[in-house]
């Protein structure tokens, strides 16, 4: 590990911004809870009683709690003590792009691993993600880190533990060589 990777003492630590609480953001979980519960109930409507009792009980309490939370949040928003945006979720704003990029890369990682195999996909993912997060700084370090980690992961997971990842170019090649 280099000084850079370890985040030297001179690297400025950004204080965590504490944005105002936004009611709409806090409503996501209870609303999701209600929607999911209703969907769930629809799937067990015709099921035998053993499939219903316990989940009806849990679902009803969830709906009660969620409605209470939503009402409370709505009242707070009306009083103006809470906002009606998604600031809580996305702050600090200058990180929105990075977060979305990381999310997209993660989805891409899972999506292509079945064709490229563990090692190659991990290498590409680590490299791209680190470059994006680090805004392109220290490319040599990043390439080196990604190579070492991907190979290390390959040795540990594929060679030693024989995790049954879909084999990609690299794995096939190495199996041929070994």
């Amino acid at each position: 590990m280099t000084e850079e990777a370890l985040g030297g003492a001179n690297a400025a630590a950004k204080p965590l911004q504490k944005p105002r609480r936004s009611a709409s953001a806090e409503m996501i979980i209870p609303v999701a809870g209600i929607v999911f519960t209703i969907y769930y109930f629809s799937t067990v409507w015709e099921a035998p009683w053993t499939a219903q009792v316990s989940s009806f009980f849990v679902g009803c309490i969830l709906i009660l709690c969620s409605v209470a939370v939503i009402v409370r949040l709505a009242l707070a928003a009306r009083r103006g003590t809470m906002t009606l945006d998604l600031e809580t979720l996305i702050a600090p704003r200058n990180f929105i792009v990075k977060r979305l990029a990381l999310l997209a890369l993660t989805i891409g990682y899972i999506f292509v691993i079945r064709w490229f195999g563990f090692t190659l996909t991990t290498f590409i993912f680590l490299m791209l993600a680190m470059l994006v997060l680090n805004e392109g700084r220290h490319p040599k370090l990043i390439v080196a880190l990604s190579t070492v980690l991907a190979l290390g992961g390959w040795l540990l997971f594929v060679v030693a533990f024989e995790v049954r990842f879909p084999a990609g170019l690299f794995e096939t090649l190495m199996r041929g060589i070994l």
Binding site: E26, I29, P30, A32, G33, F36, T37, Y39, Y40, T43, V44, A47, P48, T50, A51, S54, S55, V58, G59, I61, L62, C65, S66, A68, V69, R72
Partner: peptide
């Protein structure tokens, strides 16, 4: 209230899957 919402949200997610007796898939 929020804690209970979170907990019961988890319990509801945990209820996904077949029931133990008749193995009817749920949610």
């Amino acid at each position: 209230l929020k804690g209970l919402t979170a907990g019961f949200f988890g319990l509801m997610i945990g209820a996904i899957g077949a029931d133990v007796v008749y193995e009817m898939p749920r949610g």
